[in-house]
Nucleic acid binder design. Structure first.
Length: 863
RNA sequence: GCGGGUGUGGCGGAAUUGGUAGACGCGCGGGAUUCAAAAUCCCGUUUCCCUAGGAAGUGUCGGUUCGAUUCCGACCACCCGUACCA
């Protein structure tokens, strides 16, 4: 028996697979009878290092890809790089150098360990989104979308750092201050490009029901994000003199039934009406100032204290003009949602209630919850948002919530002041970024012709290499000549668009490029892309559950409608699995500098930086990220133990959907297991091992211990297969452990053992492919185990004749009996009551009832 | 704040989805082998009372049920997202 040496074995098989082009997905043609299978994991951002999250993500995808290959599919399993983004620019600012060099160096550095992990990837399709060839096609898509009416321009808010004179990402705003300058960040309006994702809002919403291979939770998150609601949009007329230029206030509500409970109308600080009043109202100016300083994230706005300013204006109640409501400007109303104005019904909306209490506005309940009586019902600190019966509501009195909504909308329509409206929380996708390292937006701004698309023949609009990062702001803006252009329409001097596209655009169609080839005259070959798409199994982190997946769903619809992709459903991902994240404790110094775990030593209950000896503060356990430096380098594991160990380890123990906290212990256990499997297989003399490694029938006449072994083997095959099918790789791993133990105990080399070893080898292949190949070769298997068919369990061997049944008394287990599975209820009852321990128990009790579930449980109810 | 999720031994987790809680692995303890060590193998390992055996126990509190880790309600803690991190 030779010791297993991963350092030699693993590269050997990787070279053999590469030489055989084992994982090159063939372009489908007529004589390929195999069904297609597109397995894809979210491609990595080239941060410079592979981390455990990557290993986990790609190991899972690899299990699926290899398993599906074994099941007879032609599998496409590609890899590439999500290569545009801020970190490259930050690196250039902090350490000098160029984002392009930084990115391609990182890609080179990450490709090696990724290859070293032995994933069944088709590397021939590799690309990076920052490749000119890729972003050229993205520009073509932008122009196609524009032609289709899916692109437009409007003003939108950005975080503005007044010291650095630059736009900041939300991540770069810390406690309302710029991360470098420390200056109070302001909200600014800029002209920006938008993708009209709301055009597909309804379809994006309803099509979720058809995505049955997505988890319920992701579908719910997306539904809530899109936030489709039915309600009423109507206009409040002014009571008294109307301000100049306005004839009312348009509001949207999902609860028009509560209109008689309205006690105020609130408008966003940047609503046109408020803006018009701003000039001579210092209170409004103050409010606007705090709103501007609050930043633009939803979280900050929602968490802020509710504040408002009474404008002094009043509007009339649409159903009863003897009633009028005050008009406020309020910090919790957003111009971007609905009409930028709402009416407040404090009794039935918590936010409105908080606001009303603060400004001493009336709280009139109009919905009576079941079981309350109208005379005594009051709303105190808690608004009532549930259904009930309307009262205090004139013509709506006595109606239920649903009927009340319908009737109030009908009335608004009758009065000619409003109508039923469908509204969405989803906003159009702002794609302009004032940054260098992204796909240039192919537009030329001309004083005479406006925003003119760059003609297709002039694509790509290439990023200039000669840029500097020595001052804040967009390097494209600072470049001496790049933005000078000629208007394609009138040929006069014009200015090139200096905004680049949101990097989410890059990841919204890369899968189509993987499938459709590196074409230069179009984004991808439609025929090939349409053949492979949709992705059969997509795997990635939960953190992408809403944005990335929604944007990709938008892109495929747009590509379809532009005639670039034959994908009738418009859905890019048929199956989706969101894995949990690899987390790790984070550490920082007293002055807030993050420290890598590798540089942390734990002693005497405290944490210390090894290099400086300084005591550290332990931060939260959270998503491994570069900024927090709480990353663990898998290269150490690969080098010390091998790729199979790293792969096996990340798939063991934790269920794939759950977060895992990385710990060092356990890698050793995986390493031991590799040795154990190799010992088990290698002690078999291949010459004695004459069994066929294919179908699982060669030991069909086994009896006694051999039959028992066969039962274990076939049970293991069934369970491992089920584990993979259900994305519960940890249970497959546990089952493989048990199988190895069973095979080890059985010390005879016969057909039953041969069958078991053959099944074991094929089943570990998706998890530890190098070890599996080595075992396969030793056992005398033909070709690669990678090409061998998946073992199939014989159902006859999965059914047990006898079954152990627990006997409970009042729900507590007191005894168990082993009985034939077929035993009927009557006999089971007799046998249970005859059991000596049960007899003792029930001796001085009265039996009330006996519940018998054959094959499961016997429960005697007695007192 | 809002939306979504998670919570089971010392640790990672399992439980046929309402039917024996703790499979499997790690760690730990004991033993075998060894001149010794590494490696390997065997046994034990939820807690408490400990004697056959018993009692408690799946974040907390309550409910439904013959029976709840599983279903329902309230709460607590942590994680993800919150539209310019990817």
């Amino acid at each position: 028996m030779t010791r297993y040496n991963a350092a030699i074995t693993e590269p050997k098989w990787q070279e053999a697979w590469a030489a055989a082009e084992s994982f090159t997905a063939r372009t489908p043609n007529k004589d390929t009878s195999k069904p297609k299978y597109f397995a894809l994991e979210m491609f990595p951002y080239p941060s410079g290092r592979i981390h455990m999250g990557h290993v986990r993500n790609y190991a899972m995808g690899d299990v699926v890809a290899r398993y599906k290959r074994a099941c007879g599919f032609e599998v496409l399993h590609p890899m590439g790089w999500d290569a545009f983004g801020m970190p490259a620019e930050n690196a250039a600012i902090e350490q000098g150098g160029h984002p392009k060099a930084w990115t391609y160096d990182n890609i080179a550095a990450m490709r090696e360990p990724l290859k070293r992990l032995g994933f069944a990837l088709d590397w021939s399709r590799e690309f990076a989104t920052c490749d000119t060839a890729y972003y050229k096609q993205q520009q073509a898509i932008f122009l196609a979308f524009m032609k289709k009416g899916l692109v437009y321009r409007k003003t939108a808010k950005v975080n503005w750092d007044p010291v650095d004179m630059t736009v900041l990402a939300n991540e770069q705003v810390i406690d309302g201050k710029g991360w470098r300058s420390g200056a109070q960040v302001e909200t600014r309006e800029l002209d920006q490009w938008f993708f009209k994702i709301t055009h597909y809002a309804d379809d994006l919403y309803y099509a979720l029901d058809g995505l049955t291979r997505w988890s319920e939770k992701v579908r719910t998150m997306q539904k809530n994000w899109i936030g489709r609601s039915e309600g009423a949009q109507f206009k409040f007329a002014f009571a008294g003199a109307a301000p100049e230029g306005f004839d009312g206030v348009e509001v949207y509500t999902t609860r028009p039934d509560t209109l008689f409970g309205a006690s105020f109308v609130a408008l966003a600080y940047d609503h046109p009406l408020i803006k018009s009043l701003m000039a001579d109202n210092t209170q409004l100016q103050e409010l606007a100032k705090t709103c501007v300083a609050m930043g633009s994230t939803e979280e900050a706005i929602e968490k802020a204290q509710k504040r408002g300013v009474d404008t002094g204006l009043r509007v009339a109640h649409p159903f009863d003009d003897t009633l009028s409501l005050p008009v406020y400007a309020a910090n919790f109303v957003l111009m971007g949602y609905g009409t930028g104005a709402v009416f407040g019904c404090p009794a039935h909306d918590q936010r409105d209630l908080d606001f009303a209490r603060k400004y001493k506005l009336g709280v009139t309940p109009v919905v009576l919850p079941e079981g309350e009586d109208a005379a005594n019902y009051t709303v105190e600190a808690q608004a009532y948002t549930g259904p009930g019966v309307l009262y205090n509501s004139q013509f709506l009195d006595g109606l239920g919530t649903k009927e009340g909504i319908a009737l109030s909308i009908a009335k608004l329509e009758d009065l000619g002041v409003g109508q039923k409206t469908v509204s969405y929380r989803l906003r159009d996708w702002g794609v302009s970024r004032q940054r260098y390292w992204g796909c240039p937006i192919p537009i030329i701004h001309c004083g005479a012709c406006g925003a003119v698309p760059v003609p297709t023949k002039d694509l790509p609009v290439e990023l200039p290499d000669d840029v500097s990062f020595d001052k804040p702001g967009n390097p494209l803006e600072h470049h001496p000549s790049w933005k000078n252009a000629t208007c394609p329409a009138c040929k006069k001097p014009a200015r090139r668009e200096t905004d680049t596209l949101d990097t989410f655009a890059d990841s919204s169609w890369y899968f189509a490029r993987f499938a459709g080839g590196n074409t230069d005259d179009k984004p991808f070959d439609n025929k090939q892309a349409s053949h492979w798409l949709p992705v059969d199994q997509y795997i990635g982190g939960v953190e992408h559950a809403v944005l990335h997946l929604l944007y990709a769903r938008f892109f495929t619809r747009g590509l379809r409608d532009c005639g670039l992709l034959d994908l009738p459903s418009g859905e890019p991902f048929d199956g989706l699995f969101t894995q949990g994240m690899v987390t790790h404790a984070s550490y920082k110094t007293k002055d807030g500098k993050w420290v890598m775990p590798a540089d942390v030593d734990e002693k005497d209950g405290g944490f210390f930086e090894i290099s400086s000896g300084e005591e550290l503060v332990r931060g939260p356990v959270e998503k491994m990220s570069k900024s927090k430096k709480n990353v663990v380098d898998p290269a150490d594991i690969i080098e010390g133990y091998g790729a199979d160990v790293a792969r096996w380890f990340v798939l063991s123990d934790s269920p794939p959907a759950r977060d895992v906290e990385w710990t060092q212990s356990g890698a050793v256990g995986a390493w031991r297991f590799v040795g154990k499997v190799w010992a088990l297989v290698s002690e078999t003399n291949a010459k004695d091992f004459s069994a066929d490694l294919g179908p699982m029938t060669q030991a069909k006449d086994a009896s006694g211990a051999a039959l028992e072994l066969r039962r274990s083997v076939h049970k293991a095959v069934a369970n491992v297969t089920q584990g993979i099918d259900q994305f519960r790789f940890n249970t497959s791993v546990a089952q493989i452990y048990e199988l190895v133990a069973a095979l080890k105990k059985y010390e005879i080399f016969d057909a039953a053992k041969a069958e078991g070893l053959g099944a074991l080898t094929r089943m570990i292949a998706p998890f530890m492919p190098h070890l599996a190949e080595e075992c396969w070769a030793h056992l005398g298997g033909e070709g690669f185990v990678t090409d061998a068919p998946w073992p199939v369990a014989d159902p006859k061997l999965l059914v047990e004749d006898d079954v152990v049944m627990p006997i409970q008394i009042n729900g507590k287990k007191r005894a168990e009996i082993s009985v034939p599975k077929s035993m009927g209820k009557d006999e089971l009852e007799q046998q249970s009551l005859a059991h000596p321990r049960i007899k003792d128990y029930v001796a001085d009790l009265t039996i009330r009832k006996i519940i018998i579930v054959p094959g499961r449980i016997i429960n005697i109810v007695a007192n």
